[in-house]
Amino acid sequence: MENISFRTAVLPLGDRLFRLALRITMNRAEAEDVVQDTLLKVWEQRSQWEQINNLEAFALTICRNRALDVIKRAGRNTASLDKVDNGQWSMVNGQSTLEAREQISLVRRLMDGLPEVQRTIMQLRDIEGMTYQEIAQLLDISETQVKVYLHRARTKIRKGLEIRD
């Protein structure tokens, strides 16, 4: 690999990594920090790129692991700020206000209420348009498991939307 440039080889991955990190941490500043760490890590390992089949998948794996570390350190293991229960919202820690929640769309709240793995899979499939195989490799699980998690996620979203309606 000759003439490797950070600008052309690594930076273009940024936005996709950011969206994944944002879906996990649900905080823009934290997500940007995660992306920064990830891109630097990928760049540091450029001498080994030839041994990596898919650079983007490699970067996404690092990104997800770092984002999970962030929420674990912050004590937000599932990263869900609020819990969804049949479309009814309950306060967690008593910090969120009803007005603030209403600013956020119903879909976002439903998605944010999903367990991390379901949320990540929904992000990778529905927003990033990845195949089941790519997602399975990224998360190191089977394609069947990917479909099971995705089915659970979509079912919860569907129910949430129908109850609200």
């Binding site: 600008r7 940024g14 950011f18 969206r19 940007e32 920064q36 992000q123 927003i127």
Partner: peptide, 20 residues
């Protein structure tokens, strides 16, 4: 959600960090 992206100064910040 698919249109969400990094802040505008992120790119320049990263480039200066890696010396480009």
């Amino acid at each position: 959600m698919a249109g969400e992206h990094l802040s505008k100064d992120f790119q320049d910040k990263m480039l200066s960090m890696v010396g480009e």
